[in-house]
Design a protein around this nucleic acid. Structure first.
Lengths: 111, 111
DNA sequence: CGGTAATATCGAAAAATGTCGATACAGCGA
DNA sequence: TCGCTGTATCGACATTTTTCGATATTACCG
């Protein structure tokens, strides 16, 4: 027999998903998810001190996770006096939902 | 002055998000996202050979990413003859959407 | 200005991850 | 059975990630 193929070859998407990957990477840690959920389910903002008090992590580690969430654009921060407060970015939920939709439905996503 | 607080302390969620974190971790790689998007936007299944042909990755690396997606439950696989075909798990989209909703709205998620 | 408290950054260590060459395994065809 | 092809696994390496102690920075207060 001649050369055999498995099937008519299907096209594999070769778009650049690095933006979406970075976004989901921000969600790929249980403590960051707890932080995000706390921010999402609270009215307004939360003081960093509340996270350092109540999470099972040391202060530099909390600061590290907050920085990653901040760099992903999912949260914003504001200093008032000695304290720093974080809150959910207004478009956080929408960005994540759009990224999911982009994956499944092929829409353009800005990630 | 007496001891000063930043504010009435806000409660930080301390639920276990390790399941959701593992799920999002599966999405935290651009090549896995390309694989998932290809599966989601194609009718049916895709042969592993199409991925190894068209992705800029060597065959063991493709196999590695497919394994991670499979272990997360987002895809299923079936061997037919020499070839192995992957397809999107029926509940993949729903699980991800539910995990997002669990984060933002506090619903229970099975992840 | 000096002291104290909250937060961020630095540096290091351990663990996890992405990648690939080499190899093993599975199924087909001659 | 033998050889070939597609896929998975193994072992190694480089990079990234998570964590934390130590230290720096910022702001308040006396």
């Amino acid at each position: 027999m001649s050369i055999q193929r498995c099937c008519p070859p299907k096209r594999v998407i070769r778009a650049d998903y690095s933006g979406e990957a970075a976004l989901f990477q921000a969600l790929a840690d249980e403590h960051r998810l707890a932080i995000l959920a706390s921010l999402a389910q609270t009215d307004g903002e939360i003081c960093v001190c509340d996270f350092t008090d109540q999470l099972p992590l040391n202060q530099p580690t909390v600061s590290h996770h907050l920085r990653i969430l901040h760099e992903s654009g999912l949260v914003t921060s504001a200093r008032r006096g000695t304290w720093v407060y974080y809150k959910l970015a207004p478009d956080a939920k929408r960005r994540l939902q759009q990224s999911l939709r982009g994956l499944f439905d092929g829409r353009a996503t800005v990630a």
